[in-house]
Amino acid sequence: MPNSQTNFNETFENDLDYPRLGSVSFRRGTLTDNQEANWNEHWPHLGKELSKELIDVPAWFNRQDAPTILEIGSGTGTSTAAMAPLEADTNIIAVELYKPGLAKLLGAVVRGEIDNVRMIRGDGVEVLTHMFAPESLDGVRIFFPDPWPKARHHKRRIIQSGVLNLIASRLKPGGVLHVATDHADYAQWIEELVDVEKQLEYMGWPWQECPQLTDRQVITKFEGKGLEQDHTIREFLWRRK
Rank of each mutant, 00 (worst) to 15 (best):
A82Y: 05
A82I: 09
M83V: 10
M83F: 03
M83S: 08
E87I: 11
A88N: 06
D89E: 15
T90S: 08
N91W: 01
I92F: 07
I92W: 13
A94E: 11
E96H: 10
L97K: 15
L97D: 14
Y98E: 14
Y98R: 15
K99E: 09
G101P: 07
G101F: 11
L102N: 15
L102R: 08
L102F: 12
A103I: 13
A103C: 11
L105Y: 05
L105H: 07
L106W: 05
L106G: 12
L106M: 12
L106K: 00
L106T: 02
G107P: 01
G107F: 03
G107N: 01
A108W: 11
V109H: 04
V109T: 11
V110A: 15
R111M: 09
I114N: 02
D115C: 15
N116C: 12
N116M: 10
N116Y: 12
N116V: 11
N116F: 10
V117C: 14
R118Y: 10
R118I: 09
R118G: 11
R118N: 05
I120K: 01
G122K: 07
G122V: 08
D123K: 14
G124P: 06
G124I: 09
G124K: 07
V125A: 10
E126C: 12
E126W: 09
E126F: 11
V127D: 05
L128V: 04
T129Q: 15
T129N: 15
H130T: 08
H130N: 12
H130Q: 10
F132H: 14
F132W: 13
A133D: 14
A133M: 15
A133Y: 13
P134Y: 02
P134I: 04
S136G: 09
D138N: 11
G139N: 06
V140N: 00
V140K: 00
R141C: 04
I142L: 08
I142N: 04
F143L: 07
F143W: 08
F144I: 08
F144G: 06
F144N: 02
P145C: 05
P145H: 01
P145S: 14
D146P: 06
D146S: 03
D146Y: 04
D146C: 05
P147R: 00
P147T: 04
W148L: 09
